[in-house]
Protein backbone atom coordinates (compact mmCIF):
# COMPACT_ATOMS: atom_id res chain seq x y z
CA UNK A 1 0.00 0.00 0.00
CA UNK A 2 2.76 2.41 0.88
CA UNK A 3 4.67 3.99 -1.97
CA UNK A 4 7.61 4.51 0.33
CA UNK A 5 10.64 2.41 0.90
CA UNK A 6 13.78 2.11 3.00
CA UNK A 7 14.38 3.24 6.54
CA UNK A 8 11.50 3.62 8.91
CA UNK A 9 8.83 2.15 6.70
CA UNK A 10 10.75 -1.07 6.02
CA UNK A 11 9.39 -4.01 7.94
CA UNK A 12 7.80 -1.69 10.45
CA UNK A 13 4.09 -1.71 11.03
CA UNK A 14 2.16 1.49 11.55
CA UNK A 15 1.91 0.51 15.21
CA UNK A 16 5.68 0.22 15.54
CA UNK A 17 6.10 3.59 13.83
CA UNK A 18 4.12 5.19 16.66
CA UNK A 19 5.66 2.99 19.35
CA UNK A 20 2.32 1.30 20.11
CA UNK A 21 1.47 -2.36 20.50
CA UNK A 22 -0.69 -3.80 17.71
CA UNK A 23 -4.18 -4.04 19.18
CA UNK A 24 -7.65 -2.79 18.33
CA UNK A 25 -8.18 -1.12 21.70
CA UNK A 26 -5.72 1.66 21.02
CA UNK A 27 -4.71 4.51 23.31
CA UNK A 28 -5.87 7.28 20.96
CA UNK A 29 -4.41 10.06 23.09
CA UNK A 30 -1.01 8.43 22.91
CA UNK A 31 -1.42 7.87 19.17
CA UNK A 32 -2.08 11.59 18.72
CA UNK A 33 0.84 12.67 20.93
CA UNK A 34 3.25 10.36 19.15
CA UNK A 35 1.95 11.36 15.73
CA UNK A 36 2.63 14.99 16.58
CA UNK A 37 6.10 14.13 17.88
CA UNK A 38 6.97 12.36 14.64
CA UNK A 39 5.62 15.25 12.58
CA UNK A 40 7.63 17.67 14.70
CA UNK A 41 10.78 15.72 13.83
CA UNK A 42 10.05 14.98 10.19
CA UNK A 43 7.76 17.65 8.69
CA UNK A 44 9.07 19.33 5.50
CA UNK A 45 8.86 22.69 7.30
CA UNK A 46 11.84 21.53 9.37
CA UNK A 47 13.92 20.92 6.24
CA UNK A 48 13.35 23.97 4.08
CA UNK A 49 17.06 24.82 4.10
CA UNK A 50 18.35 21.23 4.44
CA UNK A 51 20.12 18.85 2.04
CA UNK A 52 18.14 17.62 -0.93
CA UNK A 53 18.41 14.06 0.37
CA UNK A 54 17.07 15.19 3.73
CA UNK A 55 14.18 17.03 2.10
CA UNK A 56 13.17 13.87 0.26
CA UNK A 57 13.48 11.80 3.39
CA UNK A 58 11.41 14.35 5.30
CA UNK A 59 8.68 14.28 2.66
CA UNK A 60 8.59 10.47 2.78
CA UNK A 61 8.53 10.21 6.54
CA UNK A 62 5.91 12.91 7.06
CA UNK A 63 3.76 11.34 4.33
CA UNK A 64 4.08 7.92 5.93
CA UNK A 65 3.21 9.35 9.34
CA UNK A 66 0.04 10.94 7.90
CA UNK A 67 -0.95 7.73 6.15
CA UNK A 68 -0.29 5.62 9.25
CA UNK A 69 -2.10 8.05 11.53
CA UNK A 70 -5.23 8.00 9.38
CA UNK A 71 -5.11 4.21 9.15
CA UNK A 72 -4.91 3.78 12.92
CA UNK A 73 -7.18 6.63 14.01
CA UNK A 74 -10.25 5.37 12.17
CA UNK A 75 -11.58 2.18 13.87
CA UNK A 76 -12.68 0.49 10.63
CA UNK A 77 -9.33 1.16 8.97
CA UNK A 78 -7.52 0.05 12.10
CA UNK A 79 -9.37 -3.28 12.20
CA UNK A 80 -8.74 -3.81 8.49
CA UNK A 81 -5.05 -3.03 8.95
CA UNK A 82 -4.71 -5.35 11.98
CA UNK A 83 -6.28 -8.18 9.98
CA UNK A 84 -4.00 -7.41 7.02
CA UNK A 85 -1.01 -7.75 9.36
CA UNK A 86 -2.33 -11.28 10.05
CA UNK A 87 -2.46 -11.94 6.32
CA UNK A 88 -6.25 -11.52 6.06
CA UNK A 89 -7.61 -9.20 3.38
CA UNK A 90 -11.01 -7.84 4.33
CA UNK A 91 -11.73 -6.75 0.74
CA UNK A 92 -14.98 -5.03 1.60
CA UNK A 93 -15.21 -3.61 -1.92
CA UNK A 94 -15.48 -6.95 -3.70
CA UNK A 95 -16.89 -9.23 -1.04
CA UNK A 96 -20.21 -7.77 0.00
CA UNK A 97 -21.83 -10.92 1.37
CA UNK A 98 -23.32 -10.15 4.77
CA UNK A 99 -25.36 -12.14 7.30
CA UNK A 100 -29.10 -12.06 6.58
CA UNK A 101 -30.05 -10.01 9.66
CA UNK A 102 -27.47 -7.35 8.82
CA UNK A 103 -28.75 -7.25 5.23
CA UNK A 104 -32.26 -6.62 6.56
CA UNK A 105 -30.91 -3.87 8.80
CA UNK A 106 -29.08 -2.36 5.80
CA UNK A 107 -32.26 -2.27 3.74
CA UNK A 108 -34.17 -0.58 6.55
CA UNK A 109 -31.46 2.05 6.88
CA UNK A 110 -31.37 2.67 3.15
CA UNK A 111 -35.15 3.07 3.04
CA UNK A 112 -35.14 5.42 6.00
CA UNK A 113 -32.38 7.50 4.37
CA UNK A 114 -34.32 7.66 1.10
CA UNK A 115 -37.49 8.75 2.89
CA UNK A 116 -35.66 11.45 4.80
CA UNK A 117 -33.94 12.56 1.61
CA UNK A 118 -37.22 12.79 -0.30
CA UNK A 119 -38.89 14.76 2.47
CA UNK A 120 -35.72 16.87 2.96
CA UNK A 121 -35.81 16.03 6.62
CA UNK A 122 -32.36 16.91 7.97
CA UNK A 123 -33.36 16.12 11.56
CA UNK A 124 -34.31 12.59 10.56
CA UNK A 125 -30.97 12.20 8.78
CA UNK A 126 -29.14 13.45 11.87
CA UNK A 127 -31.07 10.93 13.96
CA UNK A 128 -30.06 8.17 11.53
CA UNK A 129 -26.45 9.29 11.77
CA UNK A 130 -26.65 9.03 15.55
CA UNK A 131 -28.16 5.55 15.26
CA UNK A 132 -25.40 4.40 12.91
CA UNK A 133 -22.75 5.83 15.19
CA UNK A 134 -24.29 3.93 18.10
CA UNK A 135 -24.14 0.75 16.03
CA UNK A 136 -20.52 1.53 15.13
CA UNK A 137 -19.63 1.88 18.81
CA UNK A 138 -21.11 -1.49 19.65
CA UNK A 139 -19.24 -3.07 16.73
CA UNK A 140 -16.04 -1.53 18.04
CA UNK A 141 -16.64 -3.11 21.44
CA UNK A 142 -17.19 -6.43 19.67
CA UNK A 143 -13.94 -5.98 17.74
CA UNK A 144 -11.93 -5.37 20.93
CA UNK A 145 -13.24 -8.70 22.16
CA UNK A 146 -12.73 -10.57 18.88
CA UNK A 147 -9.31 -9.20 17.92
CA UNK A 148 -7.58 -8.39 21.20
CA UNK A 149 -9.11 -10.96 23.55
CA UNK A 150 -10.52 -14.00 21.74
CA UNK A 151 -8.33 -13.65 18.64
CA UNK A 152 -11.26 -14.94 16.60
CA UNK A 153 -10.20 -13.51 13.27
CA UNK A 154 -12.92 -14.95 10.99
CA UNK A 155 -15.63 -13.31 13.12
CA UNK A 156 -13.52 -10.16 13.30
CA UNK A 157 -13.55 -10.00 9.50
CA UNK A 158 -17.38 -9.98 9.51
CA UNK A 159 -17.55 -7.27 12.15
CA UNK A 160 -14.95 -5.20 10.30
CA UNK A 161 -16.92 -5.40 7.07
CA UNK A 162 -20.02 -4.23 8.90
CA UNK A 163 -18.08 -1.32 10.36
CA UNK A 164 -16.71 -0.36 6.93
CA UNK A 165 -20.23 -0.51 5.56
CA UNK A 166 -21.53 1.76 8.32
CA UNK A 167 -18.70 4.25 7.68
CA UNK A 168 -19.71 4.36 4.04
CA UNK A 169 -23.37 4.96 4.82
CA UNK A 170 -22.42 7.74 7.26
CA UNK A 171 -20.43 9.42 4.49
CA UNK A 172 -23.47 9.13 2.21
CA UNK A 173 -25.79 10.61 4.84
CA UNK A 174 -23.40 13.50 5.40
CA UNK A 175 -23.32 14.15 1.67
CA UNK A 176 -27.11 14.26 1.52
CA UNK A 177 -27.29 16.62 4.50
CA UNK A 178 -24.64 18.84 2.91
CA UNK A 179 -26.66 18.88 -0.29
CA UNK A 180 -29.93 19.71 1.48
CA UNK A 181 -28.21 22.33 3.65
CA UNK A 182 -26.81 24.29 0.72
Amino acid sequence: MSALNNGISDNHSYFELFGLSPQFNLDLAKLETNYRSIQSASHPDRFVTALLSEKLRSMQTATLANEAYQALKNPAHRAKYLLALQGIEVAAETNTAMPADFLMQQMEWREAIDDAKQSKNIDALDALLAEMQQEARSLQATLIDLIDVKKNLPLAVDATRKLIFIDKVCVDINKIIEHLDA
Binding site: F18, S53, R57
Partner: peptide, 22 residues
Protein backbone atom coordinates in the same frame (compact mmCIF):
# COMPACT_ATOMS: atom_id res chain seq x y z
CA UNK B 1 27.42 14.65 -2.94
CA UNK B 2 23.66 14.84 -2.60
CA UNK B 3 23.36 11.26 -3.79
CA UNK B 4 26.03 9.90 -1.47
CA UNK B 5 24.27 11.40 1.56
CA UNK B 6 20.98 9.57 1.03
CA UNK B 7 21.70 6.85 3.57
CA UNK B 8 22.97 9.46 6.00
CA UNK B 9 19.76 11.43 5.59
CA UNK B 10 17.71 8.29 6.20
CA UNK B 11 19.67 7.44 9.33
CA UNK B 12 19.41 10.98 10.65
CA UNK B 13 15.65 10.94 10.09
CA UNK B 14 15.21 7.58 11.82
CA UNK B 15 17.29 8.81 14.73
CA UNK B 16 15.38 12.03 15.10
CA UNK B 17 12.00 10.27 14.86
CA UNK B 18 12.88 7.73 17.54
CA UNK B 19 14.36 10.54 19.60
CA UNK B 20 11.06 12.39 19.25
CA UNK B 21 9.14 9.33 20.43
CA UNK B 22 11.32 8.16 23.29
Amino acid sequence: LNAVTETFAAKRMDASVSHALT
